[in-house]
Amino acid sequence: MARTRQDRIEGVIEWALRACAGASVLVTVGILSILSVETFRFLREVSPLEFLFGTVWTPLFFQESFGVLPLVAGTLLVSAIALVVALPAGLLTAVYLSEYAPPRVRRSVKPVLEVLAGLPTVVYGYFALLAVTPFLQQFIPGLSGFNALSPGLVMGVMILPLVSSLSEDALQGVPRGLRDASRALGATRAQTTLGVVLPAAMSGISAAAVLAVSRAIGETMIVAIAAGQQPRLTLNPLVPIETMTAYIVQVSLGDAPTGTLAYRTIFAVGMLLFISTFSLNLVSTWLRGRYREAYP
């Protein structure tokens, strides 16, 4: 008798736990359905062709225009600048920590880099707007107060720890035997690193790089604070631009009423953002899985 009562309790608990785990799927379903419903309503009024390929974005003006390309261009511009900083510097940091640094240095540097990764993004925004931009303006005369350059650089520093820590994991995953074999052939540490360790860790490092791209595209506060609110189709890093994320913040601050077209634009832009980052994350997970297979 006692057994069956215990069994029933066990069953209830297992279902409760399963529901908890299922909640995470509900979050994804929720994101997808809210974004899809509002995007669908948006696309009933604006043709997908105009949205995806239009070159003017003025949904809040009297003369509405819904071409998302300026926002995409702004996002890509800032992300590219960030990656130019984060990828080389992050990878070199990983190489230093994994292949050169004495264990004591490694143990003390890693937590500090984690602090860099854990700072709130609003702090980076402050730094970009009030320290980096004025500093750069001393050397670059044409630099506007809002621009793509300085948030890009600051975002690069913010993403650097992500790249370095994931790349370092990948480098550490390369079996010691490969390094020994290379060194025993008379290769130096640098030759071993460049010729054997980095190529062997390549899929793990690419996973880190792809994740960095995704993080840069989705980063919001730095650009909302320091890049400006002027959607324009340009590759010039010195003038104000607007990213997809910054646009969402701009409209949220302005409090667009539910049901208006302006309200729906942020969901359409959000959908685009979600699709790009989600697929990049999938690619990164896949690359990492491939790496784990190679060196279990």
């Binding site: 979050v27 929720g30 994101i31 809210i34 974004l35 994740l211 995704s214 993080r215 595209i217 989705g218 980063e219 919001t220 994320t245 969402i248 913040v249 949220s252 942020i266 969901f267 959000g270 953002l273 979600f274 980052t277 989600f278 990049l280 994350n281 990164s284």
Partner: peptide, 11 residues
């Protein structure tokens, strides 16, 4: 874990 936080805001 990799979805941008602003998307959670939209949800």
């Amino acid at each position: 874990a990799g979805v941008p936080s602003v998307i959670y805001g939209l949800l």
